[in-house]
């Protein structure tokens, strides 16, 4: 197990994972920012948050995704950004599992709003989110900011 953790390829493997997660979170935020009312309805459909927090979540969550996604993509403050992404994935997973256990037939709300047919929740969605959670943890642990803005700053950008 220690040998697996000490594999030197982890830092390089973290690069595509970081870029993938960055693009993913920016993409996921697009429809939520474009139509926060529809996203608020998605949030309400999960029936987890009290009514007083539904709109506030719909207003703020997409921008947290944008900040984390942009930082991952740029390779700045990678570990904090990856921690945010991992925490968000954990929250999404909990919401998904609760919705599935209660038998709610609904849209995930992850990449589109309201059409349950287009992105319905299922145990496959849970598996998908688990993979993304694992990716975020990997980036948080192993990323060394290779191929990143932080790396360029450290090296000094040539004039």
């Amino acid at each position: 197990m220690r040998a697996l953790g000490g594999w030197r390829g982890h830092a390089w493997l973290a690069v595509p994972l970081r870029l993938y997660l960055g693009v993913l979170f920016l993409y996921a935020a697009v429809h939520k920012v474009a139509d926060p009312a529809a996203f608020a309805l998605d949030v309400a459909t999960y029936e987890i948050l009290p009514l007083g927090l539904v709109n506030l979540t719909a207003i703020t969550l997409p921008w947290i995704e944008i900040v984390a996604g942009a930082l991952l993509l740029a390779g700045l403050r990678v570990r904090p950004a990856a921690i945010v992404v991992a925490a968000l994935m954990a929250v999404f997973l909990l919401a998904l599992v609760l919705a599935l256990v209660r038998g709610l037939d609904m849209s995930c709300g992850c990449f589109a709003s309201q059409a349950a047919e287009s992105d319905p929740i299922s145990w496959r969605t849970v598996l998908r989110d688990l993979v993304w959670l694992a990716m975020a943890v990997h980036v948080a642990v192993f990323d060394r900011a290779r191929l990143s803005v932080a790396h360029l700053i450290r090296k000094g950008v040539p004039p």
Partner: peptide, 11 residues
């Protein structure tokens, strides 16, 4: 979007 929903959402 108002910070607080005025009425419950009709899910």
């Amino acid at each position: 979007l108002p910070w607080r929903a005025a009425a419950a959402y009709e899910t």
